[in-house]
Design a binder for these strands. Structure first.
Length: 622
DNA sequence: GCGCACCGCGCG
DNA sequence: AAAGCGCGCGGTGCGC
């Protein structure tokens, strides 16, 4: 038996490691002694790619507030069986920090099925987010185990990852990525840190649990655990990739990028990703512009380069003659290589031996509670064009289907602000932005031709977004290209037409000013505001409430036995797959289940059968 | 080899 | 009166 003493929050703690099978008896005695307690749980593995071919589980750690056991499941046999028995005990509950990863590890390595252990796990990440959803750099507590531990458990909480990285380098000639697979299971620092993590998690639960309960967040916490389990099942399910199409697309995009790079090189831009080189070349050609970045350097964003290249804002008009060949080549080369590397190649790199990718889904991520998806970032795939989404395909015999909310944020804003005109506009069933344009135009609307009406609609659509985001006339003018004076008039007219929106924003800011610089959403979520950005209050509440409506829909779907069809949440839509013969039925049922009445406002959705790939919803040929 | 700030860009 | 909101990721450039 290896034993390591340590101190946490002023208390002596012990970390143990059974080196021989007969020492498992002492572990099992620990398990009996702590029956009825919520045990800390964590795993250490070869790497983070749970679905990768070489992935292996190495340690499973169990612990209380002062004692941790590191079980070498990598050694198999009795170690594996002993850990598995504890995990499968239906009366035993656990606390994990970032449960989805460990749940998937334990499922994948056969120790305990996701559906068995999942409902018996508390996640301190979720509790920490409910108490303060901000990252460290946003002025919050941060949400990593170490960050939360420093605030709630022990200001001197050990840097359990960083310390090991030095060991990987010095003792194993490995990197922070490769070290995990090769470090000796009995390495004292490795075991100490592995054990500390479960001790921290257990203590965090004690502190955060009290805080959550005391602030009336228990129901929300329970609900978030359910939502997280549903997104964890989506991570396991994954999405299928079309390998042949994707490989061809990568080659084609690389080819395209290379052509434009060589054009740029002819004009002295050896590296299109070097903004300094691009700026030098353009200035050398006599181009002048005033746009700058936050730090004051000349900006070479699309907003600057596209007009220079005379490409307009629409990629559909790529045939337009290039006015500035450098601007043109740079913007095309960068787009082609980004699409090739960040999207298509990323799919191929992450595909498992079943042809699927398994994105990481954070069910509770943004400070507004929005979900995030990474590895790969499937919520951000280009939608202006079908080519990238075409890489994602349905399983054999199935079709990709989707249901998305209709202008959910505007509807939420109407319900929360109780603005009568906005509620009436939505209730009328007419297109909201056309309704607004007509309302504001008054008698003039009758004399406007179709083109003028469309232009007015576009402007008021932008103004509506500006209201949701808290943006001003200058930004709107820049975004729409409409003259600033016109935008100012439109904003004033909008405020007059929907006075409740501004009043609601002021109400939120006032209550925040007297109530701890935070707003509370209808779902009971506490969202801290930045002192100098109090105007963001409306957006935070609206965005957060829209997220909670989608999360609630996921639970309702699950109650109806339909969650197995869901592949991915994308903020206001659910991307799903269903057997071809009843795909339409399934997605219409899902769409109906997403709908509700919120604060007297109808929250509606649209369901659509896309086809064999995700791209088929964006124009890919059937 | 690694972390960080900055920049730019994809989405809702 | 004025204030665009929220993410993830890849590249550059720089310092350790």
């Amino acid at each position: 038996m290896l034993t390591f003493p340590y101190r946490v929050g002023g208390d002596a703690v012990t970390i143990r490691f059974p080196e021989r099978p007969d020492e498992l008896a002492a572990f099992e005695e620990f398990i009996r002694r702590t029956s009825g307690q919520i045990l800390g749980l964590d795993t250490e593995n070869t790497d983070l790619h749970v679905f990768g071919a070489q992935f292996r589980g190495r340690l499973v750690q169990f612990g209380t507030v002062d004692e941790a056991w590191c079980i070498p499941v990598e050694w198999g046999g009795p170690y594996l069986e002993s850990a598995s028995r504890v995990l499968r005990d239906p009366d035993r509950k656990f606390v994990v920090h970032n449960a989805p990863y460990d749940l998937l590890v334990l499922d994948r390595t056969g120790l305990v099925p996701l559906a068995d252990l999942g409902p018996r796990v508390f996640d301190t990440y979720l509790l920490g987010h409910l108490c303060d959803p901000r990252m460290l750099h946003q002025g919050g507590t941060g949400l990593k185990l170490k960050e939360l531990s420093k605030v709630y458990v022990d200001p001197a909480a050990a840097d359990t990852q960083d310390g090991l990285h030095a060991v990987f380098r010095k003792e194993y000639k490995a990197t922070k990525h490769t070290g995990w697979a090769v470090i000796d299971l009995t390495h004292p620092l490795y075991l100490t840190y592995a054990g500390l993590d479960v001790i921290y998690a257990t203590r965090l639960l004690r502190e955060l649990g009290t805080l959550v309960k005391g602030n009336g967040l228990s129901k929300l916490a329970h609900w978030e655990h359910r939502v997280q389990l549903l997104t964890t099942a989506m991570m396991k399910r994954g999405l299928r990739i079309d390998p042949v199409y994707t490989s061809q697309l990568v080659a084609q995009l690389h080819d395209e990028a290379a052509r434009h790079r060589s054009t740029a090189a002819e004009f002295g831009v050896a590296n299109v990703n070097s903004n300094a080189q691009v700026i030098a070349a353009l200035q050398g050609m006599g181009e002048e512009w005033t746009e700058t970045t936050d730090s004051g350097a000349p900006s070479v964003s699309k907003d600057v380069l596209l007009p220079m290249a005379d490409l307009g804002m629409q990629w559909e008009r790529l045939e337009a003659r290039a006015a500035n060949p450098v601007a043109d080549a740079v913007v095309r080369a960068k787009r082609a290589s980004k699409w090739a590397d960040s999207y298509a190649q990323a799919f191929l790199d992450k595909v498992d031996d079943q042809g699927r990718i398994h994105p990481s889904i954070r069910s509770l991520a943004a400070r507004t509670a929005r979900m995030s998806v990474s590895d790969p970032a499937l919520q951000q795939l280009p939608s202006s064009d079908w080519t990238i989404r075409r890489c994602i395909i349905a399983d054999p015999g199935q079709l990709i289907v989707a249901a998305d909310y209709s202008q959910v944020e505007m509807r939420v804003l109407a319900a929360l602000s109780r603005d009568e005109a906005l509620m009436a506009a939505i209730a009328s069933g007419e297109d909201l932005h056309t309704f607004t344009a007509r309302l504001v135009s008054g008698a003039a609307w009758e004399h406007m031709d179709d083109k003028a009406r469309k232009k007015a609609r576009k402007l008021f659509k932008a103004v509506g977004f500006g209201k949701v985001y808290g943006g001003g006339a200058v930004t709107l003018s820049r975004q729409t290209g409409a003259p600033l004076a016109d935008v100012r008039v439109a904003v004033a007219e909008y405020d007059k037409a929907f006075p409740g929106i501004r009043a609601y924003g002021r109400r939120l800011q006032r209550s925040a000013a007297y109530g701890g610089q935070e707003v509370v959403t209808p779902f009971g979520r506490h969202l801290p505001l930045d002192r100098d950005r109090a105007y963001a209050a409306t957006n935070y509440v609206v965005q957060s409430t829209a997220r909670d409506l989608l999360a609630k829909a996921l639970c309702d779907l699950d109650d109806a036995g339909l969650s197995e069809y869901v592949l991915l949440p994308v903020h206001d839509e659910l991307v799903c797959q269903a057997p071809a013969e009843d795909a339409a039925d399934v997605i219409h049922t899902i769409g109906r289940l997403m709908e509700s009445t919120f604060g007297g406002v109808a929250i509606t959705s649209e369901a659509e059968v896309y086809g064999p790939s995700w791209g088929h919803g964006y124009g890919a040929a059937a």
